[in-house]
Design a binder for these strands. Structure first.
Length: 1017
RNA sequence: GGCCGAGUGGCGGAAUGGCAGACGCACGGGACUUAAAAUCCCGAGAGGGGUCACCCUCGUGUGGGUUCGAGUCCCACCUCGGCUACCA
């Protein structure tokens, strides 16, 4: 909305209005700079409302701190009321401080926590810091300030801001992931994973009574196959290492040669360049730590069902896990000397799965029913079979392609996605169902990391295969007939009936899949197979400011790593970061910690083995994976959490945070939780029972006009109206829309230039805004994401400075539904600020020098109507909080105030109840009013008001009367009128009688307490 | 391309299948004031009629459907937003 040219800031003398004078330009800062002009006025008399957040808020924050009001009690306030664990996603304490998105979720959880306390529940509501991470390290490289210093300074600022907002956290439980005591247990959990393997066969029953297959178990219980045992101790060690939940493997990292450093994925732009400097980034394989999250894929998927999470988040997680059911099929690689029949016979005798040494290409497909249409095969460039099958003529071309593929950046990949590339290997395989000789290609559209790294290509029924086949002129055989005869089978990727498929012709797709999978299995050529998109979790980073791994690498005599590692002794945890002055990249892909002092890096074990520390560090996810556990028992020196406390508090009853964590954080946490459960350290199966995502807060809407480019020829437009609008290059806002970040004219598709306007350039006509010099042009307003570059970032400090914390809290809850994206509006903040002023004046005496109770508030009994309003409000607010529908709860309180503030006298009891309802939303003001109402302790644990249905009920109600579904009249009837009475009363109404006259009543619908509807002809 | 979500006044948004637009912003009018601010009161979906304490028509992205009755349920389409991207 435009900020009209008008005045908003007043000057006045009295001290309690000084805050408005201190920063008269504040509105200029808070509102879009361009759209406001100030007219400043002076007065010698105070006319400002006396509701003085600047006095009230610090007073009560100090009171709460002094009395440890929010320290988690040992017991529920009311016996049997139960516990409630209310958790926020803890923030990364950035140098910028809080943005307005933080208080949104935090206010919601604070309301729930305060409300639950008043209901007598035992509430755990903690806060902490996810404090490892890149920015502090980069700041250190730039300035030389140690990341620890920056981090703890930022934490202090965040804590100050959160306390300024009056959140009821139990600060005695505060933890930071960077605390040594916390790091110790993060490392300890890693060691538990390191000391475990996943037994896929293990059958057991979960705490929910459901049967499960597959469980994490101690590595000592891993059965060692006899042939491995026979190979000796090293082979056994290697076998164990290969099965651990935390294991090492070669994995590609983003190496930027120009910057001489490894980059995190977040530091690489979508087009494969470094965010800093825009240099090319290549992928280089390095030894990395991985966590075997894939072994938990099935459980992470199936146990989602019982969680009270938004369906969208569940669906994101399901997609991310990406389970698909299909078949693995063996294609025999053709020996040029054998005919295909012979090959098939030989294959049939060897059985599935293929044995080592078989020259077999195994593919994974979700559409085994299209086997007859497989006209070629593709393997990933890295596929190991390539070396053994490539023919002499093709060797060079294949080698070249593999080289190129290996060095491809993300940019090349996405670019090449548009055009398929590949090279023929010269080799052929035999299609197991029809004996057809099928050429084998390599192409980078097949990924080594999914399925078997090889596919059978069915160009007729797969988009990618079709594109590839068309590029390289490969045969296309349709094998699925769409149900609709008119549809071309080529390019048809859905289910239909089989054609060109031998004896299977006419079989519907679903049935065919099952049948052919079974038939292949019988012949030993295939079997049903399940695949997951989910990959193992790359758990190491080449960073300083993260948890060091509690791992030693073993070195040989020459000081080179042997590849074997050993865990740091538990008693030596935590492994703390060495003090280093220089965090700058060393120009090699080695992590910064490899430049740590020697005494940190090296050691000789008791058995004489030389050891070197693991120099990779853990990702930021590590600390955030389990912080919800530590909050239950933050000071425990003997365990990461006391089992009794875990049993009592877990799972988290309400978890609120941004949707950006819908997949990774929540999936990783669930994985760790399940692994720790399997190992007997936890008793709950899932960490977060109920999850809510708060919506994003956009910047304030700005006025925008639209212009077409000057070179466009307006005369081409045939439409006369259009021509008028285009004249002078302006178009109507109604004719403009944004496509991929660009403004386009809907009617012509022309690219537009969007122009932000100032209020001075705009006129209001009726309800629309128009350009002053071009009144026919309608002006639009739009909200965008807050960003520094746009200059539309709202700083909570400044809002609190002008309007107070209660107003900020209340506004953020009043904006709209919690889960919805919604734009900021500073005048909306003023709206709730005015509401708080009205609340103040309803209960407090605004004319008194000292805060005292309003003389109109008296110890009188409430009238029936007053009781009705009060109890209706209690009911509505209570139910709305239960639904997390805070915006409507606030509306209800506004209605209450609108109703009561004009009344004299106002019953004190009703004012007290209202104050309690307000308390979770605007706790400072509520505490102050509670005191004025004659109470001398905090209202934090005062019982929540109860409502009485009988007081809400009215004896007479108004209901609508419809004729043929159209509203024709409203009548007053007794609340308990039955159907017949309602009909009679409705028919007796003058207007209705007129409507019914001479008509034939076909049917009458009367819903008691609701409405009457006559159907006439 | 795929998946998920959403379209209601000038704006943010309310509405167990039952009076569309609660509450708030912005806007207009009035009271108070030398004036302004602050505060309080009143008005308002759009269009039309009028015997101004009243009535009619249209109205929740578009087109169909179910129903006595649809913002709400079903089908198709359009637009916007978010996430994801060759997963065979």
């Amino acid at each position: 909305m435009p900020q009209q040219v008008s005045s908003r800031v007043a000057f006045s003398e009295p001290a309690h209005t000084l805050r408005r004078i201190e920063k008269p330009s504040l509105h200029g800062k808070l509102l879009p700079k361009s759209s406001v002009t100030f007219l400043l006025f002076r007065t010698t008399e105070s006319t400002m409302p006396r509701y003085d957040a600047k006095r009230i808020e610090p007073k009560w924050q100090a009171f709460w701190a002094e009395h440890d009001t929010f320290a988690t009690p040992d017991q529920p306030q009311q016996p049997g009321a139960g516990k409630l664990y209310v958790l926020d996603m803890f923030p990364y304490p950035s140098a910028n401080g809080l943005h307005v998105g933080h208080p949104e979720g935090y206010t919601a959880t604070d309301i729930v926590s305060r409300y639950a306390r008043m209901q007598g529940k035992h509430v755990l509501h903690p806060m902490g810091w996810d404090a490892f991470g890149l920015p502090a390290e980069q700041h250190a490289i730039k300035t030389g300030t140690h990341p620890r210093e920056t981090t703890y300074a930022n934490i202090d600022n965040f804590r100050r801001q959160l306390q300024m907002l009056g959140f009821s956290y139990d600060w005695s439980r505060e933890v930071s992931t960077t605390d040594e005591d916390y790091v110790r247990w993060t490392q300890w959990i890693f060691l538990q994973l390191f000391d475990s393997w996943f037994d896929p066969e293990f059958e057991w029953t979960g705490p929910d009574g459901k049967k499960r297959t597959g469980k994490g178990r101690p590595i000592s219980e891993l059965p060692i196959p006899a042939e491995v045992e026979a190979e000796g101790a090293e082979a056994v060690r290697r076998f164990r290492d290969e099965h651990r939940l935390a294991y090492q493997s070669e994995a590609p990292v983003n190496w930027c040669p120009e910057l001489g450093t490894v980059l995190a994925n977040e530091e690489v732009t979508a087009d494969g360049k470094s965010e800093r400097g825009n240099f090319p980034v290549e992928r280089r394989k390095l030894r990395q730590w991985m966590l075997r999250i894939t072994s938990y894929a099935e459980r992470l998927l199936s146990e989602l069902d019982d969680l009270d999470w938004p369906e969208s988040v569940k669906s994101l997680q399901r997609n991310w896990i990406g389970k698909s059911v299909g078949a693995e099929v063996d294609f025999f690689v053709l020996d040029p000397n054998q005919s295909s029949d012979e090959a098939r016979k030989q294959r049939a005798s060897t059985g599935f799965p293929a044995k080592p040494g078989d020259d077999v290409l195994r593919v994974y497909t979700t559409r085994p029913d299209t086997l007859y249409g497989a006209t070629y095969m593709v393997v990933a460039p890295e596929h190991p079979i390539v070396d053994s099958i490539v023919t002499a003529e093709q060797k060079d071309a294949v080698e070249q392609y593999r080289q190129k593929a290996a060095h491809k950046t993300d940019l090349d990949r996405t670019d090449l996605a548009k055009e398929k590339t590949g090279v023929f290997t010269g080799a052929y395989a035999i299609n197991p169902v029809n004996g057809e000789k099928t050429p084998i290609w390599i192409a980078d559209y097949v990924l080594m990391s999914y399925g078997t790294g090889a596919i059978m290509a069915v160009p007729a029924h797969d988009e990618r295969d079709l594109e590839f086949a068309q590029t390289f002129d490969l045969p296309i055989i349709p094998v699925v007939q769409p149900g609709d005869e008119k549809t071309d089978p080529i390019g048809f990727t859905e289910h239909g009936t089989a054609i060109n498929s031998g004896d299977y012709n006419g079989t519907p797709t679903a049935e065919f899949k099952k049948k052919i999978t079974a038939d292949l299995a019988k012949q030993g050529l295939g079997r049903e197979a399940v695949n997951f998109r989910l990959r193992d979790w790359l758990f190491s980073r080449q960073r300083y400011w993260g948890e060091p791994f509690p791992i030693w690498q073993e070195l040989d005599e020459a000081g080179n790593p042997t590849g074997f590692v050993r865990a740091v002794d538990e008693a030596e945890l935590p492994v703390t970061l060495p003090d280093m002055d220089d965090f700058a990249p060393k120009g090699t892909p080695e992590p910064p910690l490899s430049a740590a002092p020697e005494e940190w890096l090296y050691r000789t074990a008791e058995d004489g083995t030389k050891l070197r520390r693991e120099t990779n560090s853990m990702p930021q996810w590590a600390g955030s994976c389990w912080y919800y556990l530590r909050f239950c028992d933050p000071k425990n020196g003997d365990a990461f959490i006391d089992p009794e406390k875990e049993k009592y508090w877990l799972p988290v009853d309400l978890y609120i945070g941004g949707a950006e964590h819908a997949v990774l954080h929540l999936l990783y946490s669930r994985f760790w939780h399940k692994a720790m459960f399997d190992l007997g350290h936890l008793q709950s199966a899932e960490p977060f029972q109920k999850l809510v995502n708060q919506g994003m807060i956009l910047g304030e809407a700005e006025l925008t006009g639209y212009r077409i480019p000057p070179d466009m020829d307006v005369s081409e437009q045939t439409d006369e109206m259009m021509a008028t609008e285009l004249q002078g290059n302006w178009v109507s806002a109604r004719d403009a829309h944004e496509v991929d970040g660009e403004w386009k004219q809907k009617s012509t598709g022309a690219t537009l230039e969007a122009v932000a306007l100032t209020a001075e350039q705009v006129d209001k006509k009726g309800n629309e805004f128009h350009l002053k010099d071009r009144p026919e042009i309608v002006v639009d307003s739009r909200a965008h994401k807050m960003s520094k570059s746009r200059g539309n970032v709202i700083n909570p400090d400044e809002v609190v400075d002008v309007y107070g914390a209660d107003a900020l809290r209340l506004y953020e809850m009043f904006m709209g539904p919690l889960e919805q994206t919604k734009p900021w509006s500073m005048s909306g903040v003023e709206g709730v600020f005015r509401f708080l002023g009205r609340v103040w004046r309803m209960i407090a005496d605004d004319n008194a020098e000292e805060p005292v109770i309003n003389p109109d508030v008296q110890d009188v009994a409430a009238t029936e109507e007053q009781d009705r309003v009060l109890h209706r409000t209690i009911k509505a607010v209570t139910e709305d909080i239960d639904k997390l529908s805070f915006n409507t709860a606030i509306s209800r309180m506004m209605e209450f105030v609108n109703e009561f503030s004009g009344q004299k006298p106002r019953p004190k009891a009703a004012m007290s109840d209202f104050t309690l309802l307000l308390a979770p939303f605007a706790p400072h003001l509520a505490e102050e009013l509670w005191q004025l109402l004659g109470n001398d302790d905090t209202l934090t644990y005062t019982p929540w008001p109860k409502f009485d249905e009988s007081k809400i009920a009215e004896s007479e109600i108004e209901i609508p009367v419809q004729v043929n579904g159209k509203l024709r009249a409203k009548i007053r009837i007794p609340a308990d009128a039955d159907r017949q009475q309602m009909q009679d009363l409705a028919a007796a109404d003058e207007t209705i009688a007129g409507q019914l006259e001479g008509k034939n009543i076909v049917k009458t619908i009367a819903v008691p307490g609701k409405l009457v509807n006559f159907v006439v002809k």
